[in-house]
């Protein structure tokens, strides 16, 4: 596989994204909003705590959960862009001439993966930086130290988030192969967050300890496994003959 070819495919998509401003807004607006909203909620909970001890208790519960929330974001964001890069090509009928070039299925698929991965990870990580800075500003007075950076955040932002984005991209490619409409593809594509949302809820009701680095590593390892499984499914879906004769 020639990575240079995949990069050419991805670069073309980046150029398209720059021209489709609405698409970029839809990718970046959610992480930015969430990253402003979560510290605001944190601030409200600290303010409303009856005393310092109650504030500390609340922070130890919500900060790991809010950090974990970025994995859900990492599942949501690629749905918009991955479904666009595949279904968009399908709708515009641009796949056939692309497939008629001296490129392999894997090179095109990997290129599509890069074009969905890079903006998605960038958006989530940009949001995470805003979230960490604002949260530190808000909680430093109560905690007496800067909560971020920490090992849990490193596991989530640098390991689990990229793995979740990959999972979401792969899932969305599979969904896109069967979808004929970008919106339908996005909606079905978002189902990928269901298991992560489940873990988040379990964390909120204290059934899973989201502040435990070991638990986070297990979640990351499971996602890695899912990534590998979905990769083989994605490759089976993204084949020239399938695309030209079965994709509707």
């Amino acid at each position: 596989m020639r990575l240079s070819i995949s990069w050419i495919v991805a670069s073309k998509d980046f150029k398209t994204f720059r021209r489709k401003r609405n698409l970029m807004y839809s990718i970046f607006i959610l992480p930015v909003l969430v990253s402003a909203l979560l510290p605001a909620v944190t601030n409200l909970m600290v303010q409303r705590a009856s005393d310092h001890s109650a504030a500390l208790t609340r922070l130890t519960l919500i900060l790991p959960a809010f950090t974990f929330f970025y994995m859900i974001l990492a599942g949501v964001i690629p749905a918009a862009i991955a479904s666009y890069t595949i279904v968009g090509e399908k709708v515009e009928r641009t796949l056939e001439p692309l497939l008629a070039t001296p490129t392999t299925d894997s090179e095109i698929l990997f290129g599509k993966g890069i074009s969905a991965f890079v903006p998605s990870v960038s958006a989530v990580l940009a949001g995470s930086v805003i979230f960490m800075v604002l949260t530190d500003l808000i909680t430093h007075g109560t905690l007496g130290y800067y909560y971020f950076p920490n090992w849990n955040a490193a596991i989530i932002f640098l390991l689990a988030v990229p793995l979740t984005v990959i999972m979401s991209v792969e899932w969305n490619v599979i969904v896109s192969a069967r979808a004929t409409d970008v919106r339908v593809a996005q909606q079905i594509g978002m189902l990928v967050i269901a298991p992560l949302a489940g873990i988040y809820v379990l964390g909120e009701i204290n059934m899973v300890n989201l502040s435990d680095a070991g638990n986070l590593l297990i979640v990351a390892a499971v996602i890695l496994l899912v990534d590998v499984l979905l990769f083989s499914l994605t490759r089976a879906t993204f084949r020239r003959e399938e695309i030209l004769t079965k994709w509707k």
């Binding site: 001439p97 070039t101 001296p102």
Partner: peptide, 27 residues
Amino acid sequence: IGFVPDNVGLYEALTAYDNLDFYGKLH
């Protein structure tokens, strides 16, 4: 080979130059 499908399949959001440049690079 060069191939023109029945549906031209051009990238509408890109310029004419960018469309050709992209395919030139792929080749």
